[in-house]
Design a protein around this nucleic acid. Structure first.
Lengths: 111, 111
DNA sequence: CGTGTAAGGAATTCTGACACG
DNA sequence: CGTGTAAGGAATTCTGACACG
């Protein structure tokens, strides 16, 4: 689940290819960026570069819009989901911290 | 080993990005194509598109050339390796065929 | 042989704006 | 609100060629 993100997350695809792959117009793709739904990379005033992950996100966005969802709502949902994810991560780290405090040093004995 | 080739093999990257990612000049990248070492995709007279796999291949090529290997030799090696791979695949299928001929139908009884 | 470069053209991408609904 | 489009400019890519070694 955390393996091979190397390719999926690399922002290397131009908007033309993204358009072909998603079936969306370049106008739509740029607009969803304006509405803060996707975040292509841009080096020194150059052209936008997208990742395979961005493409999947775009397909999800397109589906939701077809269902009548507004970009604002989509954004709220994305923020909410991210928040939940962050909280889980923090909890996980806290529990790990507790465990380490109690058993961290002893661990060495087992190995 | 056969999972997630979906991204690695998709030809979606322009030559400019490939150049950045490999450190090779566009001239070099096009030349290696001329020497049949890489095979970008081109739709209707459009620009070349490369995959992440192509990028890895290019890095290997660059290393070999630095060592003094000529493009012709690199190509021969690639052909040889491909041949070995094909032969293994055929053998595998033949053995599978034999097994199926003997036990193929009975398999159903076990399940 | 492998690579650089200048040349001219074609295709791509970008932005800001007007339009419609 | 979400999307199309024409407009003009900038950046990208392409090919064939000459150059060097």
């Amino acid at each position: 689940m955390t393996i091979d993100n190397s390719y999926k997350d690399k922002k290397v695809i131009t908007i033309g290819v993204v358009s072909e792959l998603t079936g969306l117009s370049e106008r739509q793709i740029r607009y969803y960026e304006e509405r803060k739904l996707i975040f292509p990379e841009r080096k020194e005033g150059k052209s936008r570069k997208y990742s395979f992950n961005d493409i999947e996100t775009l397909i999800d966005i397109a589906n939701k819009i077809e269902e009548g969802t507004q970009t604002y709502e989509i954004r709220q949902d994305m923020i909410k989901k991210q928040k939940l994810k962050d909280e889980k991560e923090i909890k996980k780290q806290m529990i790990q911290g507790q465990l380490n405090a109690h058993f961290g040093i002893q661990k060495k004995h087992y190995r």
